[in-house]
Amino acid sequence: MASSTAIGGHQDNFAATLRTDRWWLGPTLTAAGLIAFFGYLTIRVFYAQYVWADPYMSPVVSPPLFTPAAGYKGAVPVNHAWLGAFPAWWPSFLPKSPGFFFPVLAIMFRATCYYYRKAYYRAFAATPPACGVRGVPLKYRGETALLIFQNLHRYALYGALFLLVFLWWDGFAAFFKNGKFGFGVGTFLLLGNAFLLSCYTFGCHSWRHLIGGKLDCFSCDAQSRARLGVWKKSSWLNARHMQFAWFSLAWVALTDLYISLVSMGAIKDLNTW
């Protein structure tokens, strides 16, 4: 007969639970996945070499505002950057990475995403680590205090929609090498990247709200009826938002890895050119 002083047998110390399943597996895998993918992408942004293998541009630097004119192997050609080469005032302690500009929008989008919030609140903040498992016994204010900025997620969405246009552009641009039509494995990867990011973006909770969820009556006028159709499609994607979050994240990393390997000459791109 086990005795317990805690009422109901509920202990209140960190990670206390009477769950018998492997509740720690989910947060552990999540933490490992987040560290692996975001770690890889962060390193790539700072490294900033081998991001271009004509006609493929890595999503890690796209769209490039500036590009290093020299000193970076496999950099995006200067005529492909919006404003050309990095300006002279660029601080020397910072790598000349085009990834510091527009691609940051994608990080902001994912960092404030309702799904990723769940993932890192559980895996890193342990508030709570798993259901029915006692979280960190620190003062908790939810998203009312320090984390109130999470409410700006829809602005990150606008940034992501802007970015998406250029990622599709990169996919279609990958059909043309020196003006000649063709395609290669990289074309497929870049189009897949834009596709998966579209599935992720259009399943976003903020998008789903703005596009139709905010209405109380879908049948009241023609415009609302049209929005119902879009809302339903967004709801379908939204129900799979976690899956698309991971798939699209892994695909970005895979696309970048492939382009960097081709750029280094480590592998040969299979293509029609």
């Binding site: 309702y114 919030r117 769940k118 609140y121 559980r122 508030t127 709570p128 259901c131 029915g132 204010r141 939810g142 998203e143 009312t144 984390l147 109130i148 909770h205 709200h209 969820g213 905010k214 939204n238 129900a239």
Partner: peptide, 26 residues
């Protein structure tokens, strides 16, 4: 604002209501 959308409510609901995705987040 107190809900941090960690979704445990949705996980335990015996009626499988999308509490977080369809109710709280909207």
């Amino acid at each position: 604002g107190w809900c941090n959308i960690t979704r445990c409510c949705t996980e335990v609901c015996p009626e499988h209501i999308g509490i977080t995705d369809n109710g709280i987040i909207p």
